[in-house]
Measured scan of single mutants.
Amino acid sequence: GKMTGIVKWFNADKGFGFITPDDGSKDVFVHFSAIQNDGYKSSDEGQKVSFTIESGAKGPAAGNVTSL
């Protein structure tokens, strides 16, 4: 299901970062391709987002990331 969290950091040059879930669980990796914004796929530190957890090649990753 959908979770909410805060972007801990995001490196636009490398195209990835981490989200800290609101439920206190482990930080989740986020790749720019998962960000659902139109246009520039980046996110700012401290941005509140909703997301799903997908199982990626390197473990859990955020999917369907949407700014709230």
Results as ranks from 00 to 15, higher is better:
N37P: 11
Q47L: 12
Q47V: 11
S25V: 03
S42F: 15
I6L: 06
S55M: 15
F29I: 03
F51P: 02
S25Y: 04
G59Q: 05
F16C: 07
F16G: 00
P21D: 02
G63T: 14
Y40N: 11
S55Q: 14
A57H: 12
A34Y: 05
A57R: 12
A34N: 09
G17K: 00
A61S: 13
D23F: 06
Y40H: 10
G59P: 05
S42G: 11
V65L: 05
K58V: 08
T4G: 02
M3T: 06
G1Y: 11
K48M: 09
D38P: 13
S50F: 06
P60F: 10
D27W: 06
N11Q: 03
G56D: 09
G56M: 09
K58Q: 10
I53T: 04
V30Y: 14
S25F: 04
L68W: 06
G39Y: 11
N64P: 02
V49E: 01
K26P: 14
A57P: 14
K41N: 11
F16I: 06
N64F: 09
G59N: 06
G5I: 04
G5N: 00
S25D: 07
S25E: 04
F18T: 00
N64S: 07
A61E: 15
S67V: 15
D13Y: 12
A61L: 12
S55N: 14
W9Y: 07
M3P: 04
I6A: 05
A34G: 06
G24P: 01
P60H: 08
G24F: 05
F10H: 02
Q47F: 09
A12C: 14
D23Q: 04
T52P: 01
G59R: 07
K48I: 08
K58R: 13
M3Y: 12
I53S: 04
G63W: 12
F29C: 08
G24N: 06
D22L: 06
S33N: 08
V7P: 01
D23R: 02
I19M: 00
V65F: 00
V49P: 01
G59A: 03
V28F: 03
S43M: 15
D13L: 13
K8R: 09
K8N: 04
I19P: 00
Y40L: 13
S25C: 09
G63R: 13
G1R: 11
K8M: 04
D23E: 03
F18R: 00
M3G: 04
D13R: 12
F10I: 04
P21S: 04
K26T: 10
S33Q: 06
K8V: 07
V49T: 01
K41M: 12
F29A: 01
E45R: 15
K58T: 08
D22S: 08
A12M: 11
F16S: 00
V28Q: 00
V30M: 13
S43I: 15
A34K: 09
V49R: 00
W9D: 03
F10D: 03
D38G: 13
